[in-house]
């Protein structure tokens, strides 16, 4: 119980890392799935989680993580009922800008690299509502009225690069320089999954979505089984967008959330965690 298991939440800005973390904490307290992980108690300092929870419980978007120190740990105590194992999970809740900076500035904090060596698994977040590619120019764009066209093309900047390109690079940095265990377990979390399909009529498999929409990332993971093992999830950690807020608040917070694991819909947001820890 006392050896902490370290996890990493990796994702570019606005990919739902904090929202999932907050929802995961709530589900741990109020688990309804008999196979799911449950809370093993409260950690000493929960102020960060509690602060973010206020908005989330009200059905609102959780405020983006302000740039935090990489040493600031958020801690969850979890228990696996089946094996009666308890673990202390720690994860620095790092802002998406921290990762965007790695891509653009081509350097990382040595402390981050050192920490990677002890990481047991990584949650990799992408946003279902955001394209992995920078879309190619279309006729519709070219036919915009003259006044609506920009006068001058924007020069390429690293920060404007395609998101899947950035994410692949971040994983390349980890595999080449991170001295992590190999293969490293990655739970690919496609957030805002409610944008893709409704909980009541699920049709799309997250793996297929990744293959079609974030193909470069999908190929990279498939082509490197020696470096990474991965599983892909769709997650709605808020339950819906701003337009759905009125409906959302009719339900208890832990009832709003849902997760898509291959073809299966579940309320158990701890499932990716179980998979990362080999607690299935």
């Amino acid at each position: 119980m006392n050896t902490p298991i370290e996890l990493l939440f990796l994702g570019l800005p606005e990919t739902g890392k904090t929202t999932y973390f907050v929802a995961l904490d709530e589900v741990l307290q109020r688990q309804t799935d008999k196979h799911g992980l449950v809370s093993g108690g409260f950690s000493a300092n929960r102020s960060y989680i509690e602060k973010a929870k206020k908005a989330w419980r009200a059905g609102k978007a959780v405020e983006r993580t302000s740039l935090m120190t990489t040493d600031e740990q958020v801690e969850l105590l979890v228990r696996h009922s089946k094996s009666n194992t308890t673990a202390r999970l720690t994860a620095p809740d790092v802002s998406g800008e921290f990762f965007d900076d790695q891509w653009a500035d081509r350097k990382w904090a040595i402390s981050y690299r050192t920490r990677l060596a002890s990481v047991a698994g990584v949650f990799v977040f992408i946003n279902a509502a955001v394209s992995g590619r920078n879309p190619e120019m279309t006729e519709a764009w070219k036919n915009l009225p003259q006044g609506e066209m920009p006068t001058k093309p924007n020069p390429w900047t690293a920060r404007a690069a395609a998101k899947q390109v950035k994410l692949v690079e971040l994983l390349q940095f980890i595999s080449e320089r991170g001295q992590t265990r190999q293969p490293l377990s990655l739970a690919i979390m496609i957030s805002a999954w409610d944008v893709i399909e409704s909980e009541k009529s699920p049709k799309v498999r997250p793996g297929k979505f990744l293959e079609d929409e974030w193909s470069l990332l999908h190929q990279y993971l498939q082509a490197n089984p020696e470096l990474f093992r991965s599983r892909i999830y769709g997650v709605s950690a808020r339950g819906g967008d701003d337009a759905a807020q009125t409906k959302l608040v009719q339900l208890s917070p832990h009832e709003r959330v849902w997760l898509k694991d291959d073809a299966e819909v579940t309320k158990d947001l701890t499932r990716p965690l179980r998979w990362l820890l080999d607690w299935d």
Binding site: E97, D101, Q102, A104, K107, E176
Partner: peptide, 28 residues
């Protein structure tokens, strides 16, 4: 050198108070 970074946005050094040391990654 940092050839890929084109923007003036500073690295978030102020946010990593306890770990001021950085190491370069390949340039891309």
């Amino acid at each position: 050198e940092n050839p890929v970074a084109q923007e003036a946005k500073p690295l978030a050094t102020e946010t990593i108070r306890t770990s001021p040391q950085y190491e370069a990654l390949y340039s891309g």
